[in-house]
Deep mutational scan, measured.
Amino acid sequence: QVNIAPGSLDKALNQYAAHSGFTLSVDASLTRGKQSNGLHGDYDVESGLQQLLDGSGLQVKPLGNNSWTLEP
């Protein structure tokens, strides 16, 4: 069960990665100043990332080996 409060997208993504045990490689300029609506409930990694990114204009991309990145 994930419980991440709304706020900074950077912070939300870092909390989610730490909670879910995956690696997220992101260029900080992509997420700077963006906000997230947070995340509450049970999600697989990709669904949770998509939910956190909702409205940010960013997309999640798998890199393999439980690693992910973001792209515009």
Rank of each mutant, 00 (worst) to 15 (best):
S8T: 10
F22A: 07
L13N: 01
G21N: 09
L13D: 01
K61Y: 08
D27F: 05
Q59V: 14
L49W: 06
H19R: 09
L24A: 03
L13T: 01
L70M: 05
I4P: 00
D44M: 06
K11N: 13
V45T: 07
E71F: 10
I4W: 02
L30Y: 07
L24E: 00
N37Y: 10
V26Y: 15
E71N: 03
N66C: 09
A17S: 07
N37H: 10
R32G: 08
L24F: 11
N65Y: 09
T69E: 08
Q35S: 11
A28L: 11
N66F: 07
V60A: 15
L39Y: 03
L63T: 11
P62G: 09
G48C: 04
D54E: 15
A28N: 08
S29Y: 11
K61D: 00
T69L: 14
G21S: 06
L53D: 00
L58V: 03
Q51T: 12
K61A: 06
L49D: 00
V26F: 15
N66R: 05
L9Q: 02
G55H: 05
G41L: 03
A28I: 10
H19Q: 14
G38N: 03
N65D: 10
S20W: 15
Y43I: 05
G55D: 03
P62F: 15
F22T: 02
E46K: 12
Q59D: 08
P62W: 15
L30V: 07
G55N: 05
L70S: 00
S29I: 10
N66A: 05
N3E: 09
L53G: 00
S67W: 11
A28T: 10
D10T: 10
V45W: 12
L53N: 00
I4D: 01
N3K: 11
R32H: 12
A12S: 07
L70W: 01
H40V: 14
G55T: 02
T23A: 07
K34A: 04
A18E: 10
S25N: 12
Q51F: 10
N66S: 06
A18K: 12
A17L: 06
G38M: 03
Q1C: 15
L58T: 00
S56D: 01
D54C: 15
V45Y: 06
A12V: 15
T69F: 08
T31H: 00
N65Q: 10
A18Q: 12
D54F: 14
D27W: 07
V45R: 06
A12H: 02
A18T: 09
D42S: 13
Q50L: 12
E71K: 05
H19A: 14
D44N: 09
A17P: 00
V45S: 04
L9N: 00
G64E: 06
S36E: 01
W68L: 04
S25L: 15
S8H: 06
A12N: 05
